[in-house]
Nucleic acid binder design. Structure first.
Lengths: 205, 205
DNA sequence: GAATTCAAATACAACACTGTATTAGAGTTC
DNA sequence: GAACTCTAATACAGTGTTGTATTTGAATTC
């Protein structure tokens, strides 16, 4: 097997990536607090030395992890919303987005972990909020365009409606995931459909 | 000060209560994982001995804590919903309820912590879901009664609508709390008002 | 009021985690 | 290819946590 000889920079980058991936797995499985630096390093196939040589601290790594995830979510979201604005329903787009974003479950847990962490750490909260607001703005813009195109009056401030969408989808996704018998996929989708269409069209689903 | 001489049972109960209260505070502040048994005991004014003599483990205590909180929430909720069914708006009732339930912030954090924990522990998840569903049913019943009284057709299955209400309120409360400048109280209320009234009345707010 | 029973304190042994300081061994430069 | 410069491994010192085993002292029983 002709293993490529890596340059020092490439090698370092690879280590960073592996550590980040390992952290995501471990944090999703055991939680941020219960995940030790050692866990992360070991999971990635290194020792703690590698970790500290690449990150200042566990929190430091966690923030990088969130940023990375956020970036990828943002890209997916943009692509999705840009794709076909001709679509009749806001709901499907947004739902699809979430199904997409949280497809691997790891992502969901990491953000839940982040929200919880942000309750306790003001500095962290600021950073997390900044990320959330970026997402909100993308969605708000979409809602705005959508209503304009449909010649519907906005039922409220677009940014607030965007937050509500995020809140609703997130919460419903939680129930859907944690009690799939009570709220199976179909019911969750129908529920979102009802609320979205009634909210935006003001009328029948 | 004539301090009442406690019976053995009373004393034990007092210790349990103090430990539970202390745990709530500590868990809200630092998180479940970061809270040691020692922290809890010390916070309550005891040593670890007292803890282990009253609870099997930290998880054990945590579940008791949730049960206790749930019970008190359920009672508040029942009282609120039973009180004056003549009210015109579902939204105010439910919003009020949450403002009530999460009044002290500790409660919110504990439940967020619980949800996260439930992702990782199937047994725990079952127990948590049971509590959630109890709450859902109370709300669902209220929604049902409300729509009947208003002579409105239900826009969907009442239990699902109840879950959606919980999801929405929870999420919006999170934004409202963590970024009060972006979503101040008034905006959060207005937002809930818009969505609820549009969902249930199908028409203008 | 002596014997008992039980809640809670204390002592203890094992272990996990952190972060730094030092070392080894590659990659890089000349 | 020798000197160097990094990355990551290893060693280590300090601290925190857990759960059990034992002890103390107060409440209860007779």
């Amino acid at each position: 097997m002709p293993r490529k000889r890596l340059t020092r920079e490439e090698s370092r980058e690879q280590t960073r990536l592996r550590l980040l991936d390992a952290a995501a797995v471990s944090i999703a499985k055991k939680g941020l607090a219960a995940t030790s630096v050692e866990d992360i390093a070991a999971q990635a196939g290194y020792t703690r030395g590698a970790f500290y040589s690449n990150f200042k601290s566990k929190t430091d790594l966690f923030i990088e992890l969130l940023k990375r995830d956020h970036q990828s979510i943002q890209e997916d979201l943009q692509r999705l919303l840009d794709a076909d604005m001709s679509s009749e329903d806001l709901q499907k787009q947004l739902t699809l987005f979430y199904a997409q974003a949280y497809r691997d479950h790891t992502s969901y847990v990491i953000w839940a972990e982040a929200r919880l962490h942000s309750v306790r750490d003001a500095k962290f909260r600021q950073r997390l909020n900044a990320l959330c607001l970026e997402k909100r703005d993308v969605i708000a813009y979409f809602i705005l365009q959508f209503c304009k195109r449909m010649k519907m009056p906005l039922p409220g401030p677009a940014p607030d409606l965007a937050l509500a969408s995020m809140a609703l989808i997130d919460g419903i996704l939680y129930f859907n995931t944690s009690m799939p018998n009570e709220l199976p996929d179909a019911a969750a989708e129908a529920l979102l459909g009802t609320i979205f269409s009634r909210t935006f069209f003001g009328a029948q689903a």
